[in-house]
Design a protein around this nucleic acid. Sequence first.
DNA 1: AATTAAATTTAGACAAATCTAAAAATTAAT
DNA 2: ATTAATTTTTAGATTTGTCTAAATTTAATT
Lengths: 220, 220
Amino acid sequence: MNFTVAEENYIKAIWHLQRYNNDVTTNLLAGQLNTRPASVTDMLKKLKTKKLVHYEKYHGFSLTSEGKKIALGIIRRHRLWEFFLAEKLHFDWDEVHDIAEDLEHVSSKKLIDKLDEYLGFPKVDPHGDPIPDNQGKMETSSAIGLHELELNKTAEVSGVGNQSSELLELLKHKNIRIGTKLEVKKRFEFDQSLEIKIRNLPAFTISEQLAKNLLVKYGK
Amino acid sequence: MNFTVAEENYIKAIWHLQRYNNDVTTNLLAGQLNTRPASVTDMLKKLKTKKLVHYEKYHGFSLTSEGKKIALGIIRRHRLWEFFLAEKLHFDWDEVHDIAEDLEHVSSKKLIDKLDEYLGFPKVDPHGDPIPDNQGKMETSSAIGLHELELNKTAEVSGVGNQSSELLELLKHKNIRIGTKLEVKKRFEFDQSLEIKIRNLPAFTISEQLAKNLLVKYGK
DNA sequence: AATTAAATTTAGACAAATCTAAAAATTAAT
DNA sequence: ATTAATTTTTAGATTTGTCTAAATTTAATT
């Protein structure tokens, strides 16, 4: 089966929302896709006839297992292109997302498998998100939010909570990237801000909001 | 300005047809695009309002200089991706065209310029067609059809007349590719077929039609 | 030059994806 | 348990790109 760009964007958005929300709603999806709730309803009907979502009107929706499979294919394409853009074309990590949004809809299976091989079967994209293999399987991350890291334990940044250019710009400014090793030295109760330290550089403070969007793994 | 995939396909098709036909007609373009003459008329009106074609109804059409500029941008993207697919991902030359048809519509200028640099600013694609640079300029080829090559003069294959998988399959079977050196030993008047020789291999015969679709340059 | 043939354009319809405004269903609140 | 607020869906329109069938224009032929 073949899908339109619009269909793929809906499938992908539902998949992403399902990850962090117990139930995905019409309004939420409309917000995510910059469209209107009425348009979402229309598309849900269409995706239902294609057996990509379970959907009962007024009672929510979710991806079928077939829908999830399609979603993982799109995400695989997206993240492989992101890796290519960063690694081979030397794009900054805050530039790759938008271009990959377009490239991900080129759906030749052979192209993507050869690209994967050419890139050396990478396991994570430039934001630390895992890349599904050609069977749709991917690493499950043991990462936690920086806000839940214990004090004075070294951890390594392994991902970010989202790909907004705002977040990535801030991280670039603070010199934090995937692989950066750091420790939390102090937690301020007033606003839940954290004082962190990177190597032997002067300690500095980051907001609770930023901390929640920084994924880290324990271990030197 | 930004263009839809449909618009880009029309612009590109007109550009290609203009190269080999004095005047491009509605029917010809419809045939090329696998669509109906009525659809072509509709699109021509649209492209006229965007100043990409000169068009007076019942009296033909052609690309404006702006239209040509857009066309060269699309062709640049197409041929760079073809080069990438063949050179980096090791696709056969008869597989690259269809995939590049999709990739060419991803229109980030920065992406294409960085891709160009990454590939080492190639001058021709895997079929021997010249790749426009980021100013839209490209090599003008001195190639001639194999059917007009003088007898017993060595020449080198530099391109093919079209990218149909049928032609490319035939060439693969006959072991002819870009860079192959050959000579025409004899021309048969009856059907204009040619006997050709490649290196020290046994001579063999090719049809007039194939000869016309093989572009060669003189010189060892 | 009149008629026939071919090419092109118009008119009207349709599918995809979207929208606004109104109606219906669900959920929350008094 | 009604009423009010929110969410979701329907109804009807719009845009893009396409189609068929009919009408028009141009070109070819006798």
